[in-house]
Design a protein around this nucleic acid. Structure first.
Lengths: 134, 134
DNA sequence: GGGTAAGTTTACGTAAAGGGAAATCACATG
DNA sequence: CATGTGATTTCCCTTTACGTAAACTTACCC
């Protein structure tokens, strides 16, 4: 195990690099998504390459619509094993699959909603026609 | 104009009839979607046929995914004219059209999201395959 | 040693659409 | 009259993912 995990970066620069705010990073730590970050003597947070990978992974899942809460249920597995792409992946695959299902549901609901709107629109529109011809 | 708008109904019965809670009805009044309801001497709300129609209309729009805020922008027109299906409909049609557009957008975004998830899933899955064969 | 940029914690605020509880009031009936 | 049921107002609570402010400390530069 190497304690030297590459260059350390501070929260501000990391946030800038990832186009998020420092608040977001601290929040992820706050809710337990990140585990306590290493601090310098003065208490300033610093992040190594693995930490950065982890945040990027979180952001990726978020982008795919996975909620932070859902990620938290994965966090345990995250933490028992430091290796992200080993023990974690099967569970992630499962979550992703579930999520595809959810997305499909949403799409179906929206399509049906679209039909409802269009047919309701037609009803109103017809009503308007009849009124103006009276 | 007839002041006699049919039978008056109280909030509890109305709520039951529409399968919503009394809180919801009061809430719609609270945010200005309904206008102040007529009160009996004691201050008890009562609703006539037009009020009921209006709430039903609101619920219908809500079912179609129109937010209460969007409805509020219509509320002015609602209020200047008592006739719902006369002056109001063109605006409603417009909102509905906009809404179909929004729904289409959402569907498109979800479809693209679906692709992202599936391809990300594949990447992880491949990674897992390679690792286990090493 | 002074200035200031960036870090820290703590804690409250936000949007949406109401839910739920408390305390008081209205109305009908035995 | 007492009681029970339903209505009334008012206020805080909920969820999600942070934003924002206050008050303070650290880090860095000249």
């Amino acid at each position: 195990m190497t304690d030297d995990q590459g260059p350390l970066v501070q929260i501000g620069n990391l946030a800038k690099e990832l186009s998020i705010t420092t608040r977001t990073i601290r929040y992820y730590e706050e809710i337990g998504l990140m585990g306590p970050s290493k601090r310098s003597c003065g208490g300033v947070r610093s992040y190594n390459r693995d930490d950065v990978l982890r945040i990027k992974f979180i952001l990726k899942l978020k982008e795919l619509g996975i909620s932070l809460k859902e990620m938290l249920s994965l966090a345990d597995t995250f933490d028992t094993h430091n290796q992200i792409f080993d023990t974690i992946t099967p569970q992630v695959l499962e979550i992703l699959d579930q999520h595809v299902g959810k997305v499909d549901d949403k799409i179906a609901r929206l399509s049906s909603l679209r039909n409802d709107i269009v047919s309701y629109r037609k009803r109103i529109s017809d009503l308007l026609q009849n009124q103006s011809s009276e």
